[in-house]
């Protein structure tokens, strides 16, 4: 099981702050493709990956990052702190 979290407008488009998923995906990209196949709301949220960032186990990474054994993946728009 992997915990998938969504923040800001990604959370709003998908409709939940997080969900637990059973997945065979080996990379973040494969997980995104898997989600997009699932339902329209994921397709909408992940339509432009250049507008999104991803963190695996709370570390920023690229979409080609591997998931092997990761506990947590988070998708969100570019941060606006400060």
């Amino acid at each position: 099981m992997i915990k998938v979290l969504y923040f800001a407008w990604v959370r709003e488009r998908i409709g939940v702050p997080y969900e637990m998923l059973e997945t065979q995906s080996g990379t973040v990209m494969e997980l995104v493709e898997e989600l997009k196949q699932k339902e329209e709301r994921y397709k909408v949220a992940f339509s432009d990956l250049s507008a999104l960032k991803v963190a695996v186990d709370q570390e920023l990474c690229e979409f080609d990052a591997e998931l092997n054994g990761a506990l947590e993946v988070a998708f969100f728009p570019p941060m606006t702190g400060g």
Binding site: F7, A8, A55, L60, A74, F76, P77, P78, M79, T80, G81, G82
Partner: peptide
């Protein structure tokens, strides 16, 4: 400041 702006996971609405 530069890193907090675009690397700390905050989102402003």
């Amino acid at each position: 400041m530069d890193y907090l702006k675009s690397r700390a996971p905050f989102w402003k609405k």
